[in-house]
Structure formats: C-alpha cells, structure tokens
C-alpha cells in the first residue's frame, strides 16, 4: 500500500515533464525558425572568426520566404563573394531574438508594430517600408458554401477560419470585418496563416482570410475570392539594419537592394503591393 503514494509522486514529476512537453510542443511551429537561427548564429560565429567578408544573416517574416530566397540569390550574384543566410519565422519571434542579442544583420518584419518593438529596444536602425500585403478570402476548390463576396462570411452557417487576434494576419482580418461593418463569428482562430490555409484546403472550413501572397502560393489547393479594396486591410513590411551588425555596410546594401526596382518586381510577382501604393 505504501508504494501507491510513491507511484503518484513519481507520476507527478512525469506530469510536470508532460507540461514542459506542452510548451515544447507549442514551439514546434516555430522550431523551423529556431533551427534557422541556430544555423545563422553559427554562420556569424565563423564570420567573426574567419573574417570572411560578405556574410550576412537576415531574419525575415515567414511570408517573405519565397521572395527573399530569390532576392537573396540575385543579391549574391550582384555582389560576388557575399553569402546570405536566412532565418524565417513569425515576426514577433524574430523580434524577440534580436532584442535578446541573437547575432543578425538585417531584420525584415511583416508588421510595423513588431519593428517598433525592436526599435524601441534600440536593437535596430531606422526602418523603411519595402512592401505591402493585403488580405483575401480563400475557399476550398469546390467552394461548398458558395462564398462569392465578403458579406457571405457573416452567414452563421458558413464556417470561417481566421488568424488569432494575437498575430498580425488576425489583426488584419478583424480590420477587414470592422471596415465592412460585418459581424463574423469565426469557428476557429488559428495560430498562423498556414493553419488557416490547411483548414481551407482540407475543406474543414468553408472560408478563410489569408494574405494575398499566401493565396497565390497555394492556388492549386484553394480558390481566392477577392476582398473589395475599400474594405481591405493592408500590412506594411518594414526592413531595418540590426544595430549590432558586424557587417553594417553590407547590411545597408542589402536593404537598399530590397528596395530597388528588381526586387520590387519579384515582390510584385508574388502578390505583394509596392510600399508606395
């Protein structure tokens, strides 16, 4: 009999472990970013040791992955001898890394607010807007709820998934509904855009609100339904050089390159709007 309590005590410890496991689990989504940042830090380390000029570490919002890989290659081609290592992740997570001193040279955020967090902490130089994203409705290929325009989402029989209010794409979705004076009760507020896209492409929900760029990269799995410009919400993408960058000049060259016309074309091809428009 006396061994029961011991058993429970033992299980208690395991339970704590499982709890810890929950936080471990919660970071699975962002693990790509942490893995990325560990590569980037090792790159920086080799930079400072070997003094190999022209190695840059760029932290960028996940939605920039495709375009930045292209732009990065173009930059490397235009600046022989340079090498760019990217780390993509949620903007807020990247900002936290920079504020905490993670070695980086450039920070490109999907939200002005996140950039402000980094700026307020004195971790980055002055930022510049280089792109703008807007929102769109996506529906499953067969569009089961026959969603044609924004107002259809207010129908209580239509199952809608959006991003949670804690992440920028959720803020934007709410802004769209507010502007259109629509009362939409989403069935789920997902942790990130890709989760919304998954739910739509699996047909578990009838519609979702995502960035235009996400809809265009997933166009073989979902169908986009445009949101009228008057109701649409936009997100600004600022870019800044990290204050503690070991290659300040090169980092500045990269941000200039992102703002240059060639890069702007790559961005536009992916569905981004120019910073000016």
């Amino acid at each position: 009999m006396t061994r029961y309590p011991r058993l429970v005590a033992g299980s208690g410890l395991v339970a704590l472990l499982a709890l810890a496991g929950c936080s471990g689990g919660s970071s699975t989504t962002s693990s790509s970013s942490s893995a990325g940042s560990s590569t980037s830090s090792s790159t920086s380390a080799s930079t400072s040791q070997g003094g190999a000029q022209g190695e840059l570490t760029v932290l960028a919002a996940a939605s920039l992955r495709d375009v930045f890989v292209t732009i990065g290659k173009d930059f490397e081609a235009a600046h022989p001898g340079t090498k760019i290592t990217f780390s993509f992740g949620p903007s807020s997570g990247l900002a936290t890394q920079i504020v905490n001193g993670s070695p980086a040279d450039v920070f490109a955020s999907a939200s002005a607010a996140t950039m402000k967090t980094a700026a307020d902490a004195g971790a980055v130089d002055a930022s510049r807007l280089f792109a703008r994203n807007s929102m769109t409705i996506v529906v499953p290929k067969d569009n089961p709820a026959k969603v044609d325009d924004l107002s259809d989402l207010a129908d209580s029989t239509v199952k809608v998934a959006i991003c949670a209010a804690e992440v920028p794409c959720g803020v934007a979705a709410h802004k769209v509904f507010d502007t259109a004076k629509l009362s939409v009760k989403p069935i789920s507020e997902e942790a990130d855009v890709s989760a919304v896209l998954t739910k739509v492409s699996l047909g578990e929900v009838d519609a979702g609100i995502v960035y235009v760029t996400d809809a265009s990269s997933a166009k073989d799995k979902v169908q986009a339904v445009e949101i009228p410009a008057a109701d649409n919400a936009t997100t600004d993408y600022p870019i800044a050089v990290v204050k503690d960058s070991a290659h300040h000049d090169l980092a500045q060259q990269f941000t200039d390159f992102v703002l240059a016309p060639e890069a702007a074309k790559v961005l536009a091809d992916a569905g981004f709007a120019g910073a000016g428009g």
């Binding site: 299980s11 810890a20 929950c22 689990g25 699975t28």
Partner: peptide, 12 residues
Amino acid sequence: VLAWARALGEFG
C-alpha cells in the same frame, strides 16, 4: 495521471 497530464499539456 500520466494520461491526464499529457492531455493537459496537449497542443499540436
């Protein structure tokens, strides 16, 4: 108890 703790921390 193990199952309960695992369920309580479940996320993914």
